[in-house]
Write a protein that binds this DNA or RNA. Structure first.
Lengths: 337, 337
DNA sequence: CAAGTTTGCTCAATCGATGGTGCAAAGTTG
DNA sequence: CAACTTTGCACCATCGATTGAGCAAACTTG
């Protein structure tokens, strides 16, 4: 079976080992195992022999050596803030699937919304010779783009836009308007005609800002004034959303625009503490979709972002190296509950 | 700034480029940039000069070249079935965090519960010289272990056990017993004393089998017979769980042990179609935790697996290369709703 | 100041796969 | 059968970083 000396040395089988066993050269082995043997005029007989021996020995090419020599790496990198929600989870899954279908090697890493981690991960991916880095929901996308540019790596912003690279994002404004209108309508049905609350996200965040604008514009169009203290943006965090809600004085009825499912977790935990009457007169909707949250009684609707379309667009940019300076907006789908 | 010739050639800066700019040797540059310069007696002066130039040029080491030369890769691989639930999402997140904290480079890839994809991903990770492969919820863990063994890569099974490598899994039996008991108790409160249904997972799956055994044992201990058609194991799929539920004849009251959150999605969709009376007399619990699902009215409790403990154990095995032949069981936590 | 030590650096082999180039041997053509 | 083409393969430089070995210059010691 596999050579004992190699096993004992703890080293892996190389093309040189296979060459020795097949009584041929390393270059023949290499070309046979990477599929370029026809072009290099290796006989079918030798190819079969090498293939068989390689299989028997459990040969596995050293990707480092191969990549070092080759011009392209076929590695595509992605950073993602979290895996704790459907949105980013699905982005990661689909990114991997599309990459594989194209013969690329996807490396996804989650960076916990921490700027330092994002930078570290980006540097690592660049060092790994990734050909492209998709920065999803990055806190400082332009910094990452700068790193990529210095290394000649294509960078694409997803979910959150940057100024230095192409950005593919949802139509946050449109989605927010639709959701706001829906929640207002549903509130009217229970006799509440006041301003909604906006909960979740952070002020410095582009998506939060745009969604908030949509939220305010719809109120304005309906002639409803939004008091300042109706806007609570304590970050993307269940705990902080819950605290923010608890800090409000109790109200008879209320409607909430929840920005992100992670914030919804906090809102929902807070609502568990309400008495039945208050809960009966509570309505909310959420930007981002979750199948279980969609079934909660007070939930009137969720905005689902079009992930397939966003990724399709991103890969299209990889192919064509198109570089529009304006973010590409992908419409969302409002799913009433 | 950065050398124009390099830019034009589309190639990245190497230690040789830096060496030329700093009027020194590549080996000096290498040792300075990888931190081994003190050991190699490079002067602080030269080190500072090299560091400055490297920074100015935006140098990024070619990890492939570095790894080729080095003995250890520090790469640790993990395959995960899906990112669409909290359980696997959290496993991936925590695996990455722990790896980074240990100076390792984590590469996680999701394989959609497809055996062919699992094998492909494992081969790729081995080819990248991963030092260890953690196979999470793999459909054929022993096959992956065989691949790893041939390449001298440590393999560890997580979530689902295998025979060929160490396995770290939850105490599925204990968790299932507790959950079953809880659902039965809650059903009694609404006057239903019959057998529960078991929904989700697949017959060939170890975890499904063990959980089902716990489920049956508790029924048996209480003297409740479980009809064969109460066990529905159509796979880990929301659609198939929903179909399975729809195929049942309507009942006055019922209790369900739902195996996995993805199956719960199907069950919950099905329950939306019930009339109010039937829904009033429906109780279920789920093996695996989801914060939103925990708030659904008919949900009586969810089993949360102890991910931190499982990963801690896995990394402990990486360190010590301990190789117990029996799976290591990690207790779960039942979270009543 | 001669002998020995330390400091500070460079040289060159190496990791494993790739692919351009070269060169026999076999096959073809006139 | 000489000249030419095709087939089938091996040789070796190369990718970029690492590291053992070696060596001059500076410094120390008696």
């Amino acid at each position: 079976m596999a050579e004992d000396s190699r096993i004992l040395a703890g080293k892996r089988t190389t093309i040189y080992d296979i060459a020795r066993l097949a009584e041929t050269s390393a270059s023949a082995v290499s070309s046979v195992l990477n599929g370029s043997w026809q072009k290099r005029r290796i006989s079918k007989r030798l190819a079969a022999k090498i293939t068989e021996i390689a299989e028997r020995e459990g040969y596995s090419a050293n990707a480092q050596a191969s990549l070092l020599r080759r011009a392209r790496s076929n590695i595509v990198g992605m950073i993602v803030p979290k895996y704790d929600n459907r949105y980013f989870g699905s982005i990661a899954e689909q990114f991997e699937a599309i990459s594989r279908a194209r013969g690329l090697f996807p490396v996804v890493t989650c960076t916990q919304r921490e700027p330092a981690l994002e930078v570290e991960a980006a540097k690592e991916l660049i060092s790994f010779q990734a050909e492209c880095l998709i920065a999803t929901g990055a806190t400082d996308p332009d910094h990452l783009t700068a790193l990529c540019e210095a290394a000649g790596v294509l960078s694409i912003n997803l979910d959150l836009p940057g100024n230095a690279a192409v950005s593919v994002i949802s139509d946050n404004y449109g989605g927010a308007r639709e959701l706001t209108a829906l929640i207002l309508d549903r509130c009217r049905e229970i006799g509440y005609e006041g301003a909604l609350h906006f909960v979740g996200g952070r002020p410095s965040d582009h998506n939060t800002a745009v969604r908030l604008r949509g939220f305010l514009d719809v109120h304005h169009a309906r002639g409803i004034a939004v008091p300042e203290d109706h806007v609570l943006v304590p970050g993307y965090s269940a705990d902080r959303a819950e605290q923010a809600m608890k800090s409000l004085s109790p109200r008879d009825a209320m409607g909430i625009f929840v920005n992100s499912t992670i914030s919804l977790e906090g809102v929902v935990r807070w609502s568990q503490g309400l008495n039945d009457a208050a809960r009966q007169r509570l309505r909310y909707g959420c930007f981002d979709y979750d199948p279980f949250a969609a079934l909660l009684p007070s939930n009137v609707g969720m905005v689902q972002q079009n992930i397939s379309k966003m990724l399709e667009t991103a890969f299209d940019i990889m192919d064509t190296r198109r570089h529009p300076s304006e973010p590409i907006l992908v419409p969302c789908v409002l799913r009433p509950c």
